[in-house]
Design a protein around this nucleic acid. Structure first.
Lengths: 210, 210
DNA sequence: GAGAAGTCGTGATATTTTTCACAATTGAGT
DNA sequence: ACTCAATTGTGAAAAATATCACGACTTCTC
């Protein structure tokens, strides 16, 4: 859309900055330097300054950044002024964890409905979020553009196709399946087993250095 | 240790390749090309060939890769012949999801114990994994080198320090807190709120291209 | 066994991301 | 008002990662 020049690596760090700034603000802190931020979020201070600089000159030389100003800036950049509604598909263990997870704390993202194939679960609600049957996707999933996918891997493709048909824009996929979607739809994969295996691999092969 | 030359980006993809090769092998497939792999795991075929090439010439020109051979190679590279024991700290919603998650399917990583501060949970077990009180960390956490951290953010630092004292090598941190550890300890962060926010950001600012 | 189609491995190149390092500027202290 | 320590923003360089493109080799078909 507008700011296509912002590197992806930078974009991925924005929510992290936002959260920490929010904390600082709640603590009543007025100013912060890239060095302090760096220690808190574990990102090199030069990288932080570079990230911020894509949005213009947000700080003052010799002073640092004004917390309130920076927070306000990120709030509008990250669209925190409007609520983004998200649907969760698959109310298993992981799905349930999400429904109980309070995304709203610092964050204008809200899971507003969940779907599952299990009639036992349908009709109930978890954390105030209603659970519908997966066959009700068509009627219930109105303008929701983002879905969290926590179904069994075997169901991933079928359900993805349904979501695509319904005009979804983004999927956060916790399934081990690498789902196939049209190229205008964005999928982020979070693969828990892969993450754990990668960590173990790093420990065995890269120990004692970065 | 040995193969410090392997790029981190490559190392992170290895478990993904491994899992897919395992699937192929179970399906009785004998050969696979980088192009087929590419479609399945959504990684450019040239990148896959490059990744493999760090380990030497694993394929045959004009033919592709022998599934069984490649699988065996990755099995030893990823240390799948020996079991890696992992401890889980924090048996909340997310922690419970992990205990029920079957890491063993394609994978020699096993959660062998869990810890929590809640006396209600201590003494029980979930998915066959015993839950100890967090104060028992000292006695119970013998040679375990990897921990999954699923405690509330407020507890993250305290518990991290305990783990560090006990000689942990790696932590998979699901806490929003950016924990501080000595530099010989490796931490991977999986920050669910950040991932979701980043996805939403990409949808709003990068739509209709990469 | 000759030709065609398929595929790897990799040098070269492009792209992305991180880091260095320093001039410019600011605020605080005296 | 002056000095000094702190800090930004950024050009330039470095490092990491991804991709292109092609020679060399393999298998398949006729």
């Amino acid at each position: 859309m507008d700011q296509n020049k912002i590197p992806q690596a930078t974009a991925k760090r924005l929510p992290l900055y936002y959260r920490f700034l929010n904390n600082l603000n709640q603590q009543g802190k007025k100013r912060v330097s890239s060095k302090q931020l760096s220690e808190a979020v574990k990102v090199d201070s030069a990288t932080i300054r570079r990230d911020f600089s894509y949005f213009g000159a947000l700080g003052k030389k010799g002073y640092g950044y004004n917390v309130e100003y920076l927070l306000g800036f990120f709030r509008s950049t990250l669209d925190q002024h409007e609520v983004t509604e998200v649907a969760l598909i698959g109310v298993g263990n992981l799905g349930t964890a999400f429904l109980n997870y309070n995304f709203l704390k610092n964050n204008n993202i809200r899971i507003t409905m969940a779907f599952d194939a299990d009639q036992e679960k349908v009709g109930k609600d978890i954390g105030g979020i209603p659970i519908y049957h997966i066959d009700e996707l068509d009627e219930k999933l109105k303008d929701i553009k983002v879905a969290i996918l926590t179904v069994p891997a075997t169901e991933a493709d079928t359900i993805t196709n349904k979501l695509v048909e319904k005009g979804i824009s983004g999927i956060l996929n916790f399934t081990p399946a690498r789902i196939t979607v049209p190229e205008n739809i964005r999928v982020h994969h979070i693969d828990l087993a892969v993450e754990l295996q990668a960590l173990v691999y790093f420990l065995k092969h890269y120990s004692l250095d970065s």
